[in-house]
């Protein structure tokens, strides 16, 4: 029951933040900061994880496909796995680890330090001011980060498949371009948008409501909020992935 209640609260929280953003002054400057926090600062980890995911997939799939004499399908397997599933999911999990946990901690500290109360006394909407720009930045950054993850991952698959294990590079890239359809890309973007909204809303909600939701006050409460934000977001991403895939397939 409390999960349903929390989901309702998170939905209202996210909606309030989005609505609040559009009533703010200096939206562009705040959005730029949000894009820097969620997009730019997450880029290195996304690129690194994307590359290693592609490298490992190239290895694993090659040794599986070669048993059936189908190593020429390596490009198809790597590209579709990344674009449909692994790209959106791993991107979301990485952003949660990098930006989501930091956001939950920062908002938790601001709550404990009465900075959020201070905004209210100044007639500034705290949700629109603190959370809104990050949610809008999420809508912009998640699809781009996912696309970067996919591209670098496919390149990683090429490095192991073609450069290391001698699959013909022309065949690899031809299979990538032939097998990936717009529907696959669209599905990946839908997932990226949904995961982005869910994870950033959950992380911001946990931090913003540290005083109500954490079992402990003070620093331990902030620590608990950040931990729960990451756990909740990660589980939600996996559950939402299953649901969205069921609808898309």
């Amino acid at each position: 029951m409390s999960v349903v209640f929390d989901l309702g609260e998170i939905s209202l929280f996210g909606w309030g933040a989005l609505r609040g953003f559009f009533t703010q002054r200096g939206r562009l400057a705040k959005l730029t900061l949000g894009i820097h926090e969620i997009g730019v600062r997450c880029f290195p980890i996304i690129a690194t994880v994307g590359l290693f995911t592609g490298l490992v997939m190239g290895l694993q799939l090659y040794y599986t496909l070669v048993k059936f004499g189908a190593e020429s399908a390596l490009g198809t397997a790597v590209a579709l796995s990344l674009i449909r599933e692994l790209g959106p999911v791993l991107t979301a999990l990485m952003v949660v680890g990098q930006a989501g946990s930091a956001m939950a901690s920062e908002l938790g500290i601001q709550r404990n330090d009465e900075q959020i109360d201070a905004l209210q006394t100044m007639s500034i909407d705290p949700l629109g001011f603190l959370v809104g720009p990050r949610l809008v930045a999420t809508l912009i950054c998640f699809p781009i980060l996912t696309a970067i993850f996919d591209l670098i991952g496919i390149f990683g698959g090429y490095l192991t498949g073609s450069v290391l294990l001698n699959v013909d590079s022309g065949v690899y890239w031809n299979r990538v371009f032939e097998s990936v359809t717009w529907a696959d890309v669209q599905g990946g973007y839908i997932k990226a948008l949904v995961f982005g909204l869910l994870t950033i809303s959950i992380c911001a909600y946990r931090g913003y409501n540290t005083h109500r939701k954490a079992s402990f006050p003070g620093v331990r409460g902030v620590s608990e909020s950040a931990t729960r934000a990451v756990v909740w977001s990660s589980v939600t991403v996996l559950a939402a992935d299953y649901l969205i895939t069921s609808f898309l397939m």
Partner: peptide
């Protein structure tokens, strides 16, 4: 109303 907080809340 303005509020000056005990710990400043800067």
């Amino acid at each position: 109303f303005s509020y000056m907080f005990q710990n400043n809340a800067l």
